[in-house]
Nucleic acid binder design. Structure first.
Length: 465
RNA sequence: GGCGCGGUAGCCAAGUGGUAAGGCGAGGGUCUGCAAAAUCCUUAUACAUCGGUUCGAUCCCGAUCCGCGCCUCCA
């Protein structure tokens, strides 16, 4: 079965093939490290992780690059306001970003280049654009890309260039530019930039926003690579501008597939910093939810559909995950140390349906439906004692395989503190003596400390409440 | 205004030219010292509106209404 995915460039679902056999090169636009990313941002990173994992599931080796934008208006403004250097200002946000990635079980990319480490590469690229007549320096010293020099400008966003020009000119007071839609490659130093500046052939200044992605993708992935991703809000202008810069400089297509995920919504509106309607992952964890639950919610809706974020859906995610956990634990108990045998026929069919669903533009909802069908079938078979131990082991293996793609099925092991362990042992003794009053008291004591005790045929099970 | 996306049962959410997955919720059974959890079964005459094409449309076409996004920094 082949993997098909929606390409913004062609506005259609296309069969995915890699330029280089067996190897996918993927560039994913990363965070601007001027504050803590919110979970709307993380929807994109979780989506990209799912895409990466599915490519691997299908047998490709993946080289993924995610940039860290650590120099722009916001980072400079923030550092000056805080009275610290740019590097000192962004460092804690970089650290927090990686912590959040781990909490969401996002696989690390191969490269996380920071913009400030690649200024020479950007200058080199801008120089080539200047030489090729695609860029010019304005009176204030800034360098702009000339969209009039690049006829295919607008091909990703499908812009009407004629309409765009006449519409925007009225509102523009940037007379330095030849065309108001021209965008900055290099921004001349300004008082507001403080000590943030680099020398360049065009004087001191700093790079424009888009040039970093062009320079860094080329350095780590080559002039042409397979996949470029981001949120739909990056289609224009960011990705459009990247295409113009890179393709004008290199004369070859930047990326074959442009894949964009839809927004995370809150109360029917896009979650965003500027609207103030956002939650950080930390906010949600502080409410007692886990990174795994957040990942489940973010993953369960198709990546091209807007997803309305609510605590109620996190609760639903929690219950759904518990159902998955109960099933895998039942299978583990049944399988013991038995080697995995063949899957029951219904599970073989489920495996095919799962893969077909994911192959179809990452249809996770359909894949999860298959997974829950499998759980119901499996539970019924276990109830009826119709599942062999070897089949239970095979089902576990199937779930593990599915989880290489989903990254959400495996339950993180909770470490039980010694004092709770001691209470458990006391309670077990009380129960053996049928001292129910004592048993209930101990259960209450553990509940007070945040541990939920369940009595199962195999004994007590504790979990964090 | 330009470009684009969406409106499926109480909520979330797939999907298809021949009367519609799955999850949550709800009801019932089983299990259980109790509890919690789990599990099985059941559940709702759900496809925005109006036309058109068709033997037949929720799925195709057109119009309308509503919601959302991008067009400026934005995942």
């Amino acid at each position: 079965m082949s993997f098909r995915i929606y390409n913004t460039l062609t506005r259609s679902v296309q069969e995915f093939t890699s330029l280089e056999p067996g190897h996918v090169r993927m560039y994913t636009c990363g965070p601007t490290v001027y504050n803590i990313a919110h979970i709307g941002n993380f929807r994109a990173y979780v989506f990209e992780d799912l895409l990466r994992r599915w490519l691997q599931f299908k047998g490709w080796r993946v080289t993924q690059v995610m940039n860290l934008t650590d120099v722009d208006d916001k980072t400079i403004h923030g550092s000056r306001e805080a009275g610290v250097s740019l590097a000192d200002f962004t460092a804690p946000f970089k650290k927090a970003f990686f912590e959040d990635l781990r909490a969401l079980n996002i696989e690390p990319a191969e490269y996380y280049p920071a913009a400030t480490d690649h200024i020479p590469e950007m200058i080199e690229l801008i120089s080539r654009l200047m030489e090729g007549g695609h860029a010019y320096q304005s009176e204030d010293g800034s360098v702009y890309f000339s969209i009039d020099s690049w006829p295919s400008y607008g091909k990703l966003a499908r812009l009407d260039r004629a309409g765009m020009r006449s519409g925007v000119r009225i509102h523009s007071d940037e007379y330095d530019k030849e065309n108001v839609a021209d965008f900055a490659l290099w921004k001349a130093w300004d008082e507001k930039d403080g000590d943030v500046a680099w020398d360049s052939p065009w004087g001191r200044g700093r790079p424009g926003w888009h040039i970093e992605c062009s320079a860094m993708s080329q350095k780590y992935l080559g002039a042409s690579f397979d996949i470029h991703t981001g949120g739909v809000d990056n289609i224009f202008p960011h990705h459009e501008d990247e295409i113009a810069q890179s393709e004008a400089a290199n004369g070859q297509p930047l990326a074959a597939f442009w894949i964009h995920c839809a927004h995370l919504m809150v109360d029917g509106q896009k979650m965003s910093k500027s609207r103030g309607n956002f939650y950080t992952l930390r906010d949600v964890l502080a409410k007692g939810y886990t990174g795994r639950e957040v990942r489940y919610e973010l993953i369960a809706t198709h990546y091209r559909a807007a997803l309305n974020f609510t605590m109620a859906s996190l609760d639903a995610a929690r219950v759904s995950l518990r159902r998955i956990d109960e099933f895998t634990e039942r299978c583990k108990a049944a399988a013991g140390d038995v080697a995995a045998g063949d899957l029951p026929v219904w599970a073989q069919q489920a495996a095919q349906r799962f893969e077909a669903a994911m192959d179809d533009d990452l249809n996770v909802s359909a894949a999860l439906a298959t997974l829950f069908d499998t759980i119901r079938e499996g539970n019924s078979a276990l109830d009826a004692k119709k599942l062999t131990d070897a089949e239970a082991a095979a089902l576990l293996a199937l779930f593990r395989k599915w989880d290489t793609a989903l990254g959400v099925l495996e339950k993180p092991a909770a470490t039980v503190p010694p004092e709770i362990q001691a209470l458990l042992e006391q309670r077990q003794a009380a129960r053996a003596a049928k001292d129910w009053a004592q048993s209930d008291a101990l259960r209450a004591a553990m509940a007070a400390q945040g541990w939920l005790v369940k009595d199962t045929p195999k004994g007590q099970v504790v979990s964090p409440a």
